[in-house]
Design a binder for these strands. Structure first.
Lengths: 210, 210
DNA sequence: TGGAATATTGACTGACCAGTCAATCTATTT
DNA sequence: AAATAGATTGACTGGTCAGTCAATATTCCA
């Protein structure tokens, strides 16, 4: 098997995946037909089945790819020597930039989560669970070094953090939030402010609670 | 048309709706058949179509009902003379209790949002938008009376608040978060703490920022 | 009681679409 | 150049299921 052939094959696969992203974003996974994907990609119907076992596998592939990148980014942020707040900043920044760069893909990832989560094997759920655990781990470290208050379970904090981000994208996707170029950076900052200034030990305070 | 007849009719309709909740929660809207709903309700297939125009209308009805209650609760909280933090507490409390009381229903509401949001007319989106606006209004008042910091747009704060709650339920639904009876009250408290202590002007601080 | 209105039944139909497959084409290797 | 392997095509099939409808049962009212 020649290298150029392998590459051409991988390119075709990618072509189909990219077409699928556009179609899924436009019509939704359920409402679209496999022929729509083939048409969008400019290939014959059957070719989709040469590269994928089923329509579901196309969606699954997109999810696995994306979440693997996501996990990589989180692990990377976690491993760097920086303040915990900056680690969270790196994560929210990555997700928001993902949306800025490829809104269709992120729309699919957000809108079809529940379908993917119920897919056989539920591999995605494992990935999502891992992501939560990694974020919770970051929060824990923040608690250990005194940056974050210790009376909020890290797992819950991770939930709130990720929830805020996801809702942000959801708002953009469904037109519930304004969407200008300036919004992206402001949004990143905002999520951090809301979540961290609620997690960080009040610099003067402590007294505030008791 | 007699009153008892009207009532019996309404009861049958309700019977079908309740059965639909269980079936949707168990199998998902897409994966279930109308006959599953009829079987679960113990009625003939055709009767579903006597009370509803389509399968979608069944789901739509559940959404409209639930979001109307939701809007009512938010409006009610908003109108009472209480600290803004307590208003938010009332909202998160209602949603968490909704899940405690009827997890199947809330699972459907959470899991099938995007399908409902894309439904013709998109009435749900209007309701959701209204909910966001009402919550944002509450935050605004908090900003006006000095309880909340003014440098975070109310709309975004509402987003983060609702996002945290929704992610909480999502975590429970997909088994990403532990679920004991004690969890519910702790969770309510937690959401408030994360979000409000990030929004509220630091009691001693202010200095913290600049 | 009789007849009108409404409720209930479930077999049936027509459309839809995921996935198959046999045929054809293109590239690679010897 | 012939042979082999992989890529590409699109017509076709089989199963599924939402929605229809004509028949039957029940309730209501005069």
């Amino acid at each position: 098997m020649s290298a150029s052939r392998t590459k051409a094959s991988a390119d075709k696969r990618r072509l189909i995946l990219d077409a699928a992203v556009r179609v899924f974003a436009r019509q939704g996974f359920h409402a679209c037909r496999v022929s729509d994907i083939a048409d969008e990609a400019g290939v014959a119907y059957g070719l989709v089945y040469h590269y994928f076992d089923s329509k579901d596998e196309v969606l699954d592939t997109l999810f696995l790819e994306r979440w693997n990148v996501m996990l990589e980014v989180i692990r990377d942020a976690d491993s760097r020597p920086m303040p915990v707040r900056d680690k969270l900043a790196a994560i929210v920044s990555f997700i928001v930039d993902s949306y800025r760069h490829d809104p269709d893909l992120m729309k699919v990832i957000i809108v079809e989560v529940t379908r993917a989560a119920n897919s056989p094997g539920r591999t995605h759920l494992d990935q999502i669970r891992t992501a939560y655990e990694l974020i919770a781990g970051i929060v824990s470290k923040g608690q250990a070094d005194g940056t974050f208050r210790a009376d909020i379970e890290a797992r819950f904090a991770a939930m709130a953090f990720y929830g805020a981000i996801e809702q942000l994208l959801t708002g953009w996707i469904f037109g519930l939030l304004p969407l200008g170029e300036g919004e992206f950076e402001r949004a990143k900052q905002l999520v951090l402010e809301v979540v961290c200034d609620g997690l960080e030990v009040s610099p003067v305070g402590e007294a505030a609670v008791g």
